[in-house]
């Protein structure tokens, strides 16, 4: 378990937490389905990473007991904004895993980064944010 993989795990756990709050502020069928699917995907990635930890007999850094949201989430607009930020952040957390992995592990990291980037694009479209894409998903800035 390298620090990059540990950071990816922390980002997935933060995403699961955030979707709990995002879900509360969404009411449209499409929005809710999207948020549920995203949360499930993040749980899947979290479980994969925890499994890797088990295999490598490493221990994960304890997750913080609570998370501080970057801004108050009070309505659909702020919920979508947080969803975009969360997915961008997950992509950013997986990108540094690419250089420190090879083979299937790199393939999994790339899939996780790509899916987060695609969800960020879906949220941008739902929030009518333009452009809906980034030139370099996973690169901070």
């Amino acid at each position: 378990m390298n620090p990059q993989t540990g950071a990816a795990l922390a980002a997935e756990e933060a995403a699961i937490y955030a979707y709990g709050i995002i879900g509360v502020h969404l009411s449209g069928k499409g929005d809710i389905a999207e948020a549920r699917a995203a949360e499930q995907a993040h749980r899947g990635r979290r479980d994969y990473l925890v499994g890797r930890l088990d295999t490598l007999k490493a221990s994960a850094a304890a997750s913080p007991a609570g998370y501080e949201l970057p801004f108050a989430v009070t309505d659909r607009e702020s919920a979508l904004k947080l969803a975009i930020q969360i997915e961008d952040g997950v992509a950013q957390a997986w990108r540094p895993v690419l250089p420190v992995t090879t083979g299937n592990d790199r393939g999994t990291a790339l899939a996780a980064m790509t899916e987060a980037a695609v969800r960020a694009t879906r949220w941008r479209r739902l929030a009518e944010v333009s452009p809906a894409t980034l030139p370099f998903p996973g690169r901070a800035g």
Binding site: A91, P99, R106, A109, A117, V118, T121, T133, G138
Partner: peptide, 17 residues
Amino acid sequence: AALVGSIAASRATHAEA
């Protein structure tokens, strides 16, 4: 790997868009 990975992800988001 990181740059090429970002390009792969970007192309996927284009298909989505």
